[in-house]
Write a protein that binds this DNA or RNA. Structure first.
Length: 460
RNA sequence: GGCCGGGUGGCAGAGUGGUUAUGCAGCGGACUGCAAAUCCGUGGACGUCGGUUCGAUUCCGGCCUCGGCCUCCA
């Protein structure tokens, strides 16, 4: 029985899809004016794992993740660069796909862009005006009238009176209430714009997601996800827009992932304390980064630290070492590994607990290998199968163990040659020479393992 | 100020009203020419003060403390 934590109820609930066997899920994706940082990577990997697990459980999942390709920051950045905004966004969408692919993220089934959804956006704004939820301001902007939506605040736990009492709400004369938010922004001279019944302009931030999600998944769908910082105002406003426009419940389960932190502080663009995915991938294999992300339950904070990445690297070394040298086989059904794995994932996608099961399984594999047991390969296959639900351990063990340091290290041929020389010395019982060669390799970050079947090596 | 979520052994990180998380690191053993890897064993923990209870790290309350949202943010 899958339990998921629903931000709407602030508790874990049994997951029941609207349509039996099918899951419709929408996740807020990137605003493409810069490279993805680790926080974006977390969203991509977390919801990728959720999608994989739902499929593993037999659900037919339709996964939609949007791209925000028009907004203030995009316009500002394009102006700084002196290029059309479309050139900027095209470039960063491509970069995002590269990062996403590198991290082993299965692409969403549908990836709508805001600029491709203008007709749907205009239609929804018009509906909101027609239903009395929105009004046109003096400056040509269209605003959502928050006071018309009775349950405003239900997702984020805000109280309208509290919000009104807050001092940080920007004053804008065109709004009749400071809490109102913009649906359609009138274009200033020189800005990208689209024609509308209210004049040339562009969509406000929140409306695009309401329009794209309901357009792709219907008025009412199962899961809506994103980073915790989107809970308010973005998702709160999406609810107001969507339910205001359609008159139907919008989303059953709201899932929000926690932040990546650095030095106990949120990693973010505005704080400038971020690492981009490509910076990190230049130094660690992508699977290490993915593993690192999954060492923390998705709602918990994830602290960025070199030491933690090193730890992740070592954990994968352990797994791949267990898988090393095993022939292909059908996964065995012995033991309760799969049941334990599923139970962990059923509990709000508890990946750390699931990984603990995989470690137990890896031990069973090692033991079977050591004892020459017949089911070693089958256990290894089970390990691969379950890890695959997390998007891990799908590679060739040798590629992981001997790869990674693509740069200045010794080539595989050089390493093999030195191992051959060392084994000749060992055969002659010339331990001093053998150890000298091993030390030399160690200095080049090569670890040797003398086994019954010969000497194997890996990069440390 | 309002509203959320945390504080677990050297580090990371799950979980539970009374019994081993797991990984890394440490210690002992097996294996090895010596190592490495692997296996076996092992020490070490639940912010603080109260309450409920036969019994709380686990439930409740206060306190301390960290983080987040309330403005763009994954």
């Amino acid at each position: 029985m899958l339990q998921v934590y629903n931000t709407l109820s602030k508790s874990k609930e049994t997951f029941t899809p609207i349509e039996p066997g099918k899951v419709r899920m929408y996740v807020c994706g990137m605003t493409v004016y810069d490279y993805c940082h680790l926080g974006h990577a977390r969203v991509m990997v977390v919801f990728d794992v959720i999608t994989r697990y739902l499929r593993h459980r037999g659900f037919d999942v339709t996964y939609v993740r949007n791209v925000t390709d028009i907004d203030d920051k995009i316009i500002a950045r394009a102006n700084e660069n002196g290029e059309p905004f479309h050139a900027l966004t095209t470039r960063f969408i491509e970069a995002m796909h590269e990062d996403s692919d590198a991290l082993g993220v299965i692409p969403p089934d549908i990836e709508p862009k805001a600029t491709d959804s203008i007709p749907e956006i205009l239609a929804m704004v018009q509906t909101l005006i027609d239903k009395g939820h929105a009004y046109v301001g003096d400056n040509g902007d269209v605003y959502y009238d928050v006071s018309t939506f009775a349950t405003y605040g239900k997702l984020s736990g805000k109280d309208i009176a509290d919000l009104r009492a807050g001092e940080r709400i920007a004053v804008n004369e065109a709004k009749t209430d400071p809490l109102d938010f913009v649906l359609w922004k009138a274009a200033k001279p020189g800005e990208p714009s689209w024609e509308s019944p209210w004049g040339a302009g562009r969509p406000g931030w929140h409306i695009e997601c309401s329009a794209m999600s309901t357009n792709e998944l219907g008025d009412h769908f199962d899961i809506h996800g994103g980073g915790m910082d989107l809970t308010f105002p973005h998702h709160e406003n999406e609810i107001a827009q969507s339910e205001g426009a359609t008159g139907h419940p919008f989303v059953n389960y709201w899932l929000h992932n926690g932040f990546v932190r650095i030095n106990e502080e949120k990693m973010s663009k505005s704080l400038g304390n971020f690492f981009t995915v490509r910076e990190i991938l230049a130094r660690y294999q992508a699977e290490v980064v993915r593993y690192f992300i999954l060492t923390s339950q998705y709602r918990s904070p994830l602290n960025y630290d070199e030491e933690h990445l090193e730890n992740a690297k070592g954990a994968l070394t352990r797994f791949y070492t267990a898988l090393r040298g095993l022939p292909d086989a059908e996964p065995v059904t012995v033991g309760d590994f799969e049941a334990r794995f599923d139970a962990a994932m059923d509990d709000d996608f508890n990946t750390p607990e699931a990984l603990a099961v995989l470690f137990d399984l890896a031990r069973a594999v090692n033991k079977a290998k050591e004892e020459g047991a017949a089911d070693a390969a089958g256990l290894g296959a089970l390990l691969r199968k379950l890890a695959g639900v997390l998007g891990l351990l799908q590679g060739d063990p040798e590629a992981y163990l001997q790869g990674g340091d693509a740069g200045d290290g010794l080539s595989a041929d050089q390493v093999e040659a030195m191992i051959a020389a060392r084994n000749a010395a060992r055969a002659a019982r010339n331990w001093a020479e053998a150890d000298r060669l091993r030390d030399e390799l160690a200095a080049a970050n090569i670890v040797l393992e003398d086994g019954a079947g010969g000497t194997t090596w890996r990069r440390g």
